[in-house]
Design a protein around this nucleic acid. Structure first.
Lengths: 200, 200
DNA sequence: AAAAAAAACGAACGGTCGTGCTATTAATAG
DNA sequence: CTATTAATAGCACGACCGTTCGTTTTTTTT
């Protein structure tokens, strides 16, 4: 069978479809993503698109998953290159703030949280898993900063990451509703004040 | 014509419709609210419901407006009975936290923010107006607390209300995604820490 | 009680939705 | 180059969408 190409034709177009689907879902939400619109966006027939996923729900799951990967690649992975401790925590938060700025048309994951937070189902579960992992990563970074002696020893990592999340949510909201630059400045300042309040 | 009844029949059923619409939209969002479902929920015909609003968009606007009134009645108005200053600020935040707890099936306004933050139109504008007023009320309460000497004189009211909003957003999210009681505790603590950090 | 006005109904319209099916075309394997 | 398999198109389906319109029922006014 010899060395098989990395991506067969099918997998390649599936990737293309997911790409368009992601950008539609960023604006319209996962619930606002329709197969007809998506097919038109990629220049295929509805059934052609549909065949790649088997159901709308599976499509939504795949898009959500791709959104999680994008965020990981853009924010979490780069932050892992920063040294453990405060530097890495700053990298996470800074990357996240940049993410909010750069995805001005909407953040898929934030939208998905709103859409599925009170609606049971596989998508709800997927959202919970995504956010939990993300939150845990943040808390872990806090713990390492404590261990490095860069934050007070009695710092509550869960509490701190709760507050960090709050600032990011407020930034996200204000960026879209009001003035992005001012929102960014306020978020930066909020985070800095949080760090000084917890500095040893 | 004599003393007219306060509400004609039409206005009364309109109110009933809005009531059901509100509770549907809390779960499904304003975009997930369909006239057919709504008609079934109130036991009327689709066209009967429709006639009260003239268009779906006007229905959505009316529901959003009713949501704003509900929040005002439940949180903002009661807080005005607290004396100016820190007491009133605490009342606003506490009432808000209670609101998140009591609307477990979802907050209409928070959902609307997500749905329309990046989609231009009358609903976007209505959401912005709603949030802006709400935020200004919070900032005003902060200013009065400063004037009363209960917060440091150099307190930045906009900054503080940004952070308060962040905690409420995080509370909202965690309440639905994770553990409501823990989320509440974290939000309380975050707010308290904020106040102590800014106490004179 | 009769007349006028308001409210609700029922049926239909053109669309779009997700989803099956059956062909047909394109990519891969031998 | 041929045989096999994977990928896509085309079409139709039942369901629901928001909306319109004419009719009927209910409420209000005279």
């Amino acid at each position: 069978m010899a060395a098989q190409t990395a991506t067969s034709k099918g997998a390649a177009t599936r990737e293309l479809i997911l790409d368009r689907a992601y950008s539609i879902a960023c604006r319209e939400g996962l619930e606002g993503l329709s197969i007809g619109d998506l097919a038109q966006a990629v220049g295929m027939s509805k059934s052609g698109v549909f065949a790649h996923f088997g159901s709308r729900e599976d499509l939504q799951l795949a898009v959500l998953d791709s959104g999680g990967r994008r965020f990981g690649d853009a924010v979490l992975i780069p932050a892992l290159r920063a040294p453990r401790g405060l530097a890495r925590l700053r990298a996470i938060v800074g990357g996240w703030y940049d993410w909010v700025r750069d995805n001005r048309q909407g953040c898929l994951i934030m939208g998905a949280v709103s859409e599925y937070d009170s609606r049971p189902g596989v998508l709800h579960d997927a959202v919970v898993t995504l956010i939990k992992r993300w939150r845990d990563d943040t808390a872990r970074a806090v713990v390492m900063a404590v261990e490095a002696g860069e934050l007070r020893a009695d710092t509550d990592a869960k509490q701190l990451s709760f507050e960090i999340f709050g600032f990011a949510l407020a930034l996200h909201q204000d960026t879209r509703l009001f003035d992005p630059k001012q929102a960014r400045a306020q978020a930066e300042r909020a985070f800095d004040r949080l760090l000084t309040a917890n500095s040893p």
